[in-house]
Design a protein around this nucleic acid. Structure first.
Lengths: 132, 132
DNA sequence: TGATTGCATCGACCATCATCAACACATCTA
DNA sequence: TAGATGTGTTGATGATGGTCGATGCAATCA
């Protein structure tokens, strides 16, 4: 039960824990670019977590499916068959993506619908920009 | 109820309950573009190697140092002290970056000078572009 | 030639990860 | 209420990865 559910301005809801992770991420990764200036160890660690979440074929395919979804969201049950992994494994990868701030899960009834966090993707993309 | 199972155009079935929550037509629920896995396993694997190489703080700092180098290249001996790892570890990370196509090593005399592959970086950056 | 320097590689250790089966929990239906 | 379904979690296991010290190899120098 989502006792800690938080309603966002866009109408979606996330758990308090989830919001805390995203909030911390947004605040911390306030634009460190890998290529613009020398990275300190802390910033490097935070960016590495984001890129590490992208460093798995299964997770890239999950993101790819989300990006191609007309409605911008897919429920977990729709992932399992195309990915070809067990439901537990898919849930595991979705959790890693969620903790990295790349996707958000929204429970509606029995199903949980996942959608991309385009802002977080833009952050990681800009981290690879040569220009500050 | 189970007798209300709906057969989608792709042969899969969902319950009426499921379709109701989705709030869309059968065609919308079973959108083939989502189930067709836009990112095939091979492409996902290649991209994952690239992002996986970025998924380590030490390697991000190596890339950052290279980007900030006035001459655009740094010899291995100049990496070791700032990174704070053993020479063998630094060499290990440079090899991973090299195999991922992110850097190139050029031996001149006793020294090996590493430089960024900006094209490969741009390729990974564009892979995060959610706009087609 | 022998010694030194810079870099790559190897072996070993430990941590982390990917995966699955099984289970736990919440939600919905009959 | 009991049963079915969707999802998250746990435990176990094999694979992968990060790190270091030691070693190997090539280039340079005395």
């Amino acid at each position: 039960m989502m006792v800690d559910a938080i309603t966002l301005v866009n109408g979606r809801t996330v758990t308090a824990e989830h919001a805390a992770v995203v909030g911390r991420t947004n605040a911390a990764v306030c634009c460190p670019s890998v290529l613009a200036a020398p990275l300190d160890a802390r910033s490097a660690g935070q960016l590495a977590r984001g890129f590490g979440a992208l460093g798995d074929p299964v997770r890239l395919r999950l993101l790819s499916m989300l990006a191609a979804a007309p409605a911008g969201e897919i429920c977990v049950c729709e992932f399992v068959a195309p990915i070809g992994k067990s439901q537990g494994t898919v849930s595991h990868h979705l959790r890693i993506l969620s903790e990295a701030g790349l996707v958000h899960g929204d429970r509606r009834g029995k199903w949980v619908w996942y959608s991309l966090d385009h802002a977080r993707l833009a952050q990681l993309r800009s981290a690879l920009d040569t220009q500050p």
